[in-house]
């Protein structure tokens, strides 16, 4: 249902490194899960609109007004690495 190459591609897209053991285990498990999902194919849903938000809700719009909620220092408090008030990361290759 899903092969090792696909699992590798997906893990790259999701920025996850998998060990050889994990690759094998996930390939097996994901395959089993996808087999189960196949049952949806039995349903003809061509004329059914997808349901995205399950409850009828009114669309809220925000008025264009500036409001400060937190300070710069609060916002950077959790930064794993910083230079002054900028977040710091290794260079993009």
């Amino acid at each position: 249902m899903i092969d090792a190459k696909t699992v590798e591609d997906i893990s790259k897209l999701a920025r996850l490194t998998l060990s050889t053991e994990e690759k094998k285990r996930f390939t097996d498990q994901l395959s089993q899960i996808l087999i189960h999902f196949k049952e949806l194919d039995k349903l003809n849903t061509d004329s059914v609109e997808p349901l995205l938000t399950p409850t009828p809700l009114e669309s809220p719009l925000r008025i264009d007004v500036v409001e400060r909620k937190t300070t710069v220092s609060e916002n950077l408090e959790n930064a794993p690495d910083r230079t002054g008030n900028a977040f710091r990361v290794p260079p993009v290759v």
């Binding site: 920025r15 959790n78 930064a79 794993p80 690495d81 977040f87 990361v89 290794p90 260079p91 993009v92 290759v93």
Partner: peptide, 16 residues
């Protein structure tokens, strides 16, 4: 990047 636990010693962004 902005919060949480960052893996130590990653030399480039992708590795991070």
């Amino acid at each position: 990047v902005r919060f949480g636990k960052r893996s130590s010693s990653s030399t480039d962004l992708d590795a991070l």
